[in-house]
Design a protein around this nucleic acid. Structure first.
Lengths: 240, 240
DNA sequence: CGAAGGGTTGATCAATTTCAATCGCGGTGG
DNA sequence: CCACCGCGATTGAAATTGATCAACCCTTCG
């Protein structure tokens, strides 16, 4: 079984065999979580860094009025909260969207790995910058895109991220995401998501079935979304 | 003149006199920028780290249809793009909202300062985590808050951030922000912002005049916003 | 079999945008 | 000095988007 963390990191920088071995050691004791299981809740003390090996997680927050907003999806290979121990308490929760396999890496483990493996440190910082770019793109989507554009844009993002780690097959990829989750991520109601999905399906752009997404016409989808992949930074700076 | 960068950093960790001196050296050659001046544009090569000493900056992006979305405000003491050099090109622009004084710190300067001053490194990482928390809060606002809540929430955030660095006087603080800027930040139209501001003014919560904000009734404003300041992480983890 | 979670649809309601017009102020050229 | 210009603020009316309310269906699962 491929280690997606290694795969993602090595897509960003050149890793030596020793680097790869270190990454493998540090993710060698993962734990399984069922879908809908919270890994950490708002208000909890900050803990170790999480590395997703299989499945999907999300960051989310529940508002006083009961509505939920998802702020990020984490897919295999993604790590979260590199320096999180510097803060006292979590300001949001993290939940498994699908059944997931997640390794935890303590701060000291992480620190010593990054001290000994500058390539890994560089890759981690790069990954964090890309994640920030993704957050900014979400802000742009929520602020200035229509509902259909938002849905299309998110699917484009998730598709490219999935493709980077080899989770896609032609236009298809497995995305165990309900319409409710999509609504919580995009700040819309499930009812409206449903109508938008219908519209995108009828337009021949994409279709979401239980557990998987099919991109019918990539060009059309990208065009609807106004998607420009430069914020995912597939091209990075060469070594200093 | 107080160095706001030093002030902000020392609010996060205990700094020695040597740490403070290093921060002062590194920000000793700032440059002035007029309001509306772009410091860096989308597509540009990534450059040095920026440190705001006076004024206000924003990160923004223009969409193909011409609309603009602001993704963050930077105020005195804020630094941006710690590891930015790892990426090839900027995925957004940075502009001065008001006349500003900004220092640039090259990556090597930054690196050696952080190597020699672990306190500073810790403070930088903490600041970055807080900035990420702010971005997540924006996503929540845009997704799940009504327009009045959004405006109130942003003002609460900016007020607290301004207060942290001593820029407030009672309920007042200087905020050279037009209604158009507010609209671009909150994903609304200027017309609607205008109506919401009127509503908040009539409700006796806050008032925005050319160049400054008055918080008339803090309790009411916080309550309208559903504001909870824990995401700004005023309380941090004690040293390891 | 019954309940729960997801998905789908129609009708109506509310929030926000769009369009259009007006006002005031500060700066500038004549 | 003053008319004029441009930007920002303000307001009303109409149009549009998306939310809400209310059913109903289907599949899965205990």
């Amino acid at each position: 079984m491929t280690n997606r963390f290694v795969q993602k990191m090595s897509g960003m920088v050149d890793l030596t065999a020793r680097d790869v071995a270190a990454l493998e050691v540090v993710t060698s004791r993962p734990r399984r979580y069922a879908a809908r299981k919270d890994l950490i809740r708002e208000g909890d003390e900050t803990g170790p860094m999480l590395v997703v090996l299989e499945g999907w997680l999300c960051r989310y927050k529940i508002l006083p009025n009961g509505s939920r907003q998802i702020m990020a999806f984490m897919m295999p290979g993604d790590a979260c909260d590199l320096h999180i121990k510097l803060l006292a308490a979590m300001d949001h929760s993290i939940q498994a969207v699908a059944p997931s396999l997640v390794a935890t890496v303590s701060r000291t483990e992480m620190q010593s790995m990054m001290d000994e493996h500058p390539n890994i440190a560089r890759a981690m910082y790069t990954a964090q910058l890309v994640d920030e770019g993704i957050m900014r793109a979400w802000i742009v989507s929520m602020g200035r895109r229509s509902s259909a554009e938002r849905v299309a844009h998110l699917i484009c993002e998730l598709y490219l991220r999935a493709r980077n780690i080899g989770l896609t097959h032609d236009g298809d990829f497995s995305l165990p995401m309900s319409q409710v989750i999509l609504a919580d991520a995009l700040g819309m109601t499930p009812v409206h998501i449903n109508r938008v999905l219908k519209e995108l399906r009828l337009a021949g752009a994409m279709a979401l079935k239980r557990g998987s997404v099919t991109i019918i016409d990539p060009v059309k989808l990208v065009q609807i979304a106004g998607f420009d992949d430069n914020y995912l930074h597939r091209r990075l700076h060469q070594t200093d």
